[in-house]
Nucleic acid binder design. Structure first.
Lengths: 204, 204
DNA sequence: GACTGATACGAACGGTCGTACTATTCTTGT
DNA sequence: ACAAGAATAGTACGACCGTTCGTATCAGTC
């Protein structure tokens, strides 16, 4: 997420810096709030100079989302993969996810969650990208649950989709309560909710 | 939500019609997507004629939210109050809430949930109104939980805030999965989640 | 040293935004 | 039926939107 090292062309470096800044703006102002003019000001570029990197606003949005999804993978998914299969990995995914939504680099929360409610009624490539990313994440959660069953940590009749569904709900309410309501106990309550959710399916 | 009967001045009638239409637009396009021009077209008024009813865009947004919250009360809260105190009432609140988010008059889902992620980083009266409404709803949910404890339906050590928190999460994920992902099983899974949530705190 | 491609800038386009003013039409009470 | 006043339309404004175009700067190649 920081300016990456050399060995790349200047255009690529500028583009990466633009996307970093854009992701912060999207986090705070939403995808609709990401404007070529404000992004140009924030990066110190001219509108036209910035525009040339993407060719259209929609291309810019798609690039920002791709950038955000890549970072999500690095910050949330990959560290969790270092944990043992099953419940430890699933818990890590959840905890990393919460940390991501409260990350300092995302002052306005997860851009994908914010974008979801902005674009859920606007068909097109942006919506498709959002939906695709979130579907993939759900599948990842389901896979972790299945592995917990294989490891004998959750009972055989566990429904991975139901668990992924409920976990997603906990993450959403954390995001919602913290950002709109300033609810401080969100993280604590989320961990309680996850524990009791998993306990329901624990091996007896 | 439909044009109400006579006995009111014409201005009030058109104002109500404007708010009905505005609520539908907000549902689909979000609060940011509600513009004076499109709303004027949708209602058959001129921009200036419509504008005169509110005086500013922010006043319009506040009026739309007040209208939405009033409808929420009529459609979700009041019918639930007709149910017996405790779990029946709590369940009715939840079921009515889900139905509200999928209501035909709200083609894009709950305007307040959508507005929440748009305005969670934009301080001001709109955000305050959104937060106030949702805090009030949370308190209503907590009250229903407390009454279920009083009625002996939930155990004494039940934490109403935790339950309200998790219920809110289920509602959010239903909204999210249905609208962005077109997930058909959302309602069914939500009812499963609610049942097992309440079972955790059932009297033993 | 001339040429080329990448990169960025400045100015301008048509369009829409919210808002302000004035004029006109329509309701309504008498 | 008519005047008073509410309700709506008309017009114009400055700001910003995404986008396009022509141009300037600079790195590297021949």
């Amino acid at each position: 997420m920081n300016a990456q090292a050399q060995s790349t062309t200047k255009g690529e470096r500028t583009r990466a810096a633009i996307l970093d800044e854009a992701l912060r703006i999207v986090s705070k102002a939403g995808l609709d709030g990401l404007t070529i003019g404000t992004l140009a000001d924030a990066t110190g570029l001219s509108k036209s100079g910035l525009f040339a990197h993407f060719g259209s606003r929609e291309e810019l949005l798609l690039a920002v989302l791709a950038h955000g999804q890549a970072e999500f993978g690095e910050v949330v998914f990959q560290p969790a993969m270092a944990k043992p299969r099953g419940l430890p990995r699933l818990r890590a995914m959840f905890v990393n996810w919460l940390a991501w939504t409260e990350s300092a680099e995302l002052p306005g929360g997860c851009p994908m969650i914010g974008g979801a409610s902005e674009f859920d009624d606007k068909p097109g490539p942006v919506r498709d990208m959002l939906a695709g990313g979130q579907r993939a994440w759900i599948e990842t959660l389901k896979r972790a649950v299945r592995q917990a069953v294989e490891e004998g940590q959750l009972s055989e009749d566990t429904d991975p989709e139901q668990i992924a569904f409920e976990i997603f709900g906990i993450a959403l309410v954390v995001h919602h309560h913290r950002r709109l309501l300033g609810y401080k106990k969100a993280r604590e309550r989320a961990l309680i909710a996850l524990d009791s959710l998993l306990k329901r399916y624990a091996v007896s």
